[in-house]
Computed example of a mutant assay.
Amino acid sequence: MQGRKALVVGIDEYASSPLYGCVADANAVAGVLAKNGDGSPNFSIHLERNVESPFELKRMIEDCFSGDPEIALLYFAGHGGRCDVTKNGFILSGQGYPEGQLSLDEILTIANNSKAKNRVILLDSCNSGCMGAPGALGGTSSLLDEGLTILSACCSNECAEEYNGRGTFTSLLVDALNGGAADVMGHVTPGGVYAFIDKALGPWDQRPVFRTNVNSFISLRKVVSQVPDSVLRQLPSLFDTPGAQLSLDPSFEPTNSPDWEEHRIVEPYATKDNTEKFKILQQLEGIGLVRPVGAEHMYFAAMESRSCELTALGKQYWRLADTGKI
C-alpha cells in the first residue's frame, strides 16, 4: 500500500551483555508487516540488524518519520534502560551503555515533529514504558502529538523478558498481527494488538503500556475476514433496526424439505429465499453477531418458529453497514 513505511530494528550484538532473540524478532515483525493476509503489499520495510552507532540509529529513525506518508512505524528490539537520576528512558545501539545510548525523549520528539499522518512506535526493550510517560520531554504531562501511538513491552520500571530465544512481547505481537487481534472484517488495529497482548500476560508478568492520541484507529494489517464484507453489508436488510428481532419459521431451515426424506419435515417447507437468508444468519451467528432467541441453536429457532437478534457486537456492525462504512 502506498504511503506505509516501517523501520524494523533488532540488535543482538552488544559490546557487553549480548542478546539472542532480537534479530529473530525483527525478522519476524518485518515478515508479517510486509504483506497482508492475502499476500497483497502492506508496509514498505527497512530492516536493520545490529546497528552499531547511536547516531546511525537516530538517522534511521529520522528517515523513518520523514516525508508525509499515511503511516510511519518504528519497531525496536534490543537493550533499553532508564537513568536512575532523571528517570528518563533510552534504547541502546550495539555500542552498549553508555556510548550507544539514544534517549526515548529524542525519539518521541522526532515522531511528534513528523508530518506522517499516523505514527506508530513499538518497543521491545527494558523500561520502554518510559516513552511518553507523564513528565516526558521535561513537561508535566504526556506529550503525544495527534496521530501518535506507542506500544511498549513493559512498564518504565520493568524488564522486557525473553522466552525460548524470543521476546515475550514480540512473540505475542506477531501472533496478534497474524490475525489473533483481527476484528470481524480482518483489520488489526493498534488497540486490538494491545488488548490481545494484555490478555495474554497475567498480573505477575511484564505489563505492556499503550499510549495514544488518535481520533480513529488505523489498520496495521489486514487478514482474511471471518465473513465477506458483502455479508456484513446485508445486516440492515435483515434487521430493520439494531434492536429488531427477525422472525423465523421452518421455511428457513434447508433440511425441512421433502427432498430430505430421512428428516422430519413440517410446514411451511423450506424456500430458496429464506434458506439463503438463513445461511447468512448462521454465518453471522458463528462469529458472534447474531443469536437465536428462546432456542439453543438457530436450527431449533427456525423449526420452532422463534426468532433471532443481533448481539451487541452485531449492532455495532449493523450501524457500520447502515452508514456505508463497510
Rank of each mutant, 00 (worst) to 15 (best):
I107V: 09
V231W: 05
A321R: 02
I326P: 01
G192K: 05
I150P: 03
D25N: 09
I197F: 10
D12F: 10
V184N: 04
H187I: 03
G191F: 11
T189L: 06
T189Q: 02
Y269R: 09
V224P: 08
T241N: 00
K222C: 15
A28S: 11
S219N: 07
S171C: 11
D273N: 12
T255I: 13
E158C: 05
T86W: 10
S125F: 08
N215S: 12
E70G: 02
Y269H: 15
E62C: 11
S230M: 12
C130K: 06
I150C: 02
G129C: 03
L57C: 01
V8G: 01
N256I: 01
K87N: 14
E70T: 04
C154N: 07
G80E: 06
D205S: 11
L57D: 00
D38T: 09
A270K: 03
D145T: 05
A176K: 05
V29C: 00
C126S: 07
S66H: 03
K277A: 03
C159S: 15
N112G: 06
D205K: 03
C159T: 14
A160L: 03
K272V: 13
V29E: 01
V223T: 12
A195G: 05
S125N: 03
N213C: 07
N213R: 08
G67P: 01
G81P: 05
C155M: 13
K222S: 15
N178Q: 13
Q282K: 15
L33I: 14
T86F: 07
P98V: 13
C126L: 00
C154R: 03
D175T: 10
L173A: 01
S225A: 08
V188Q: 04
R264D: 12
S103A: 15
G202F: 00
D249P: 00
K199C: 14
G89Q: 06
R221I: 08
P203R: 09
L173E: 04
